[in-house]
């Protein structure tokens, strides 16, 4: 029987953390991409607001925004096996994170659409643009520029919140660090390293956002 407890940090642990960071990154990228696309569609429905759909959707999205993510994760993870679709932690985590992201992005997207005033859209339509051409060539680029900072804020939040998927047993950064801490009893060093990893993921996103903002405002 090998003694694995209470051994110091080893080089192989670094690899373990890198792998975990990749998983954090992957689940974030996936849920942010899906959540953003969904969120834009939801934001558009909320803006159009003509259908009962908008009312219902608004309530559902409010729920996603207000119920603590950790509760959503556990509920979802335990709910799906009941209806006969057992999901692994990664799948459940991605779905919940994506829906949560979509709820946040929906508000941002609606704000973006509404930042483009009615007069601007009338001008576009008066040139013969169809509803969709106006949306694609006028509302989208102008709205995007005005809400980019808010969207970056959502993205950075979701990257951090992805740590909560660890409660389902998915070995991403936070979970990996807990495993290592238990074994090495060196919480300070390990958490510092993990912090640096999160920073390395988030920092470039913020920078790219700033760069785009600078480019667009000139």
């Amino acid at each position: 029987m090998e003694q694995v407890f209470f051994t110091g940090l080893q080089w192989s642990d670094a690899w373990f953390l890198v792998e975990a960071a990749q998983k954090s990154l992957w689940i974030s990228v996936l849920s942010i991409s899906v959540g953003t696309v969904l969120g834009i569609i939801f934001g558009w429905v909320l803006h159009e607001g003509r259908w009962i759909a908008a009312g219902t959707l608004g309530t559902v999205l409010d729920a996603f925004r207000s119920i603590p993510l950790i509760i959503q994760l556990v509920l979802f993870f335990n709910f799906f096996p009941i209806i006969g679709f057992p999901l692994d932690p990664f799948q459940a985590g991605t779905i919940v994170l994506a829906l949560y992201t979509s709820a946040l992005v929906a508000n941002v997207a609606r704000g973006g659409i509404e930042s483009v005033g009615e007069p601007m859209q009338r001008a576009a339509r008066s040139l013969g643009m169809s509803y969709w051409q106006n949306l694609r060539h006028v509302v989208w680029p102008i709205g995007l520029r005005s809400v980019l900072p808010s969207w970056i804020g959502v993205v950075l939040g979701v990257v951090k919140d992805s740590a909560l998927v660890s409660v389902l047993g998915y070995v991403e950064l936070l979970r990996a660090s807990q495993i290592l801490i238990t074994r090495t009893q060196e919480p300070f060093a390990i958490l510092a390293i993990v912090g640096v990893f999160y920073f390395l993921i988030s920092f470039p996103i913020g920078r790219i956002g700033k760069r785009l903002e600078g480019k667009w405002s000139s």
């Binding site: 007069p119 601007m120 009338r122 001008a123 576009a124 339509r125 008066s126 040139l127 013969g128 643009m129 169809s130 006028v138 680029p141 102008i142 520029r145 667009w216």
Partner: peptide, 20 residues
């Protein structure tokens, strides 16, 4: 109406240039 509007240019009080 989108086709018809090509015949009817319109200029508004607010100029509404596309800022981007």
């Amino acid at each position: 109406v989108n086709l018809l509007r090509q015949k009817l240019g319109m200029v508004f009080q607010q100029w509404n240039s596309f800022p981007h």
